[in-house]
Amino acid sequence: MTTADLTLAARQEPTVPTRKTKRIDWLGLAITLALGIVVVVPLVVVAIWAFAEVWRYPSILPQEFGLRFWEATLSRPDVWQAMSLSIRLSLTVTLLSAVICLPAAYAFARLDFPGRNLLFLSFLASHAFPKFGLLVAIASIFLNLGLVSTFWGVVLIQLVGTLMMMIWIPVAAFQNVDRAMEEAARDAGAGPLRVFWSVSLPQAAPTIGAAVLLSFVGTFYETEGAWLIGAPEIRTMPVLMITFINNQIVVQYGAVLSVLLWVPSFFALMFSRRLVGSSSFAKGFGV
């Protein structure tokens, strides 16, 4: 290396602003607190209910804590079946969605074909209309096809719900990939498929990872479709929770299941914090 380059390297070092404003942003703090209360308090209440055995009106904390309802819930085989079913369903849907949507997203981002914009917007359609009506219509079709109350019937209906997120976010991610990078790979001798696999996909990976995680969590908690199409045979965790709440006045069953349901989102959040910087996430939305 030469001195000229050395001096340049030194000069190009990103300058980190060291001066920070000492003043506290009270308005920002107030908004954060208000939002925090609205988001956190219900969660805390549910969490407390899950461990409460006796909790009567005027007292702020339960009179008796205990794990009775946990034992009762966890000893039920249908809870474990629902948990394993929910995980299998979400994995299948997310995987299928990725296989279908990622190449499609790449096509939307890089190719120009007739009807491109119309087709692109059509992915909004499933979210633009009242979902329940749509689901009832689909359910009647599925009934004729013998898909109601089957695993793959639920997979199909939940797949529809993931399409928008798995198309729109990756399209933005692929559009952000420098075209010259792809051209450089072509120049080095890679065919279009190889370019996609070796350059475009890894470049867009952080944002796509976020979309995949969101789809997984979204599918895990999806209730309406799973209930309408899956009942009575296919009972996912959220569906089971609804039955629990509907059939029993005991709050604790619902609370315990709800806390159990936090597990996947907790892992998803931990994972996404490691995988995805907030900047690449914002990039995916074109911010």
């Binding site: 420098d178 010259a180 990078m181 051209e183 450089a184 790979a185 070796s198 350059v199 890894p202 470049q203």
Partner: peptide, 8 residues
């Protein structure tokens, strides 16, 4: 390329 286009 002008933008060096290295695969980051």
């Amino acid at each position: 390329f002008q933008s060096h286009a290295l695969w980051s």
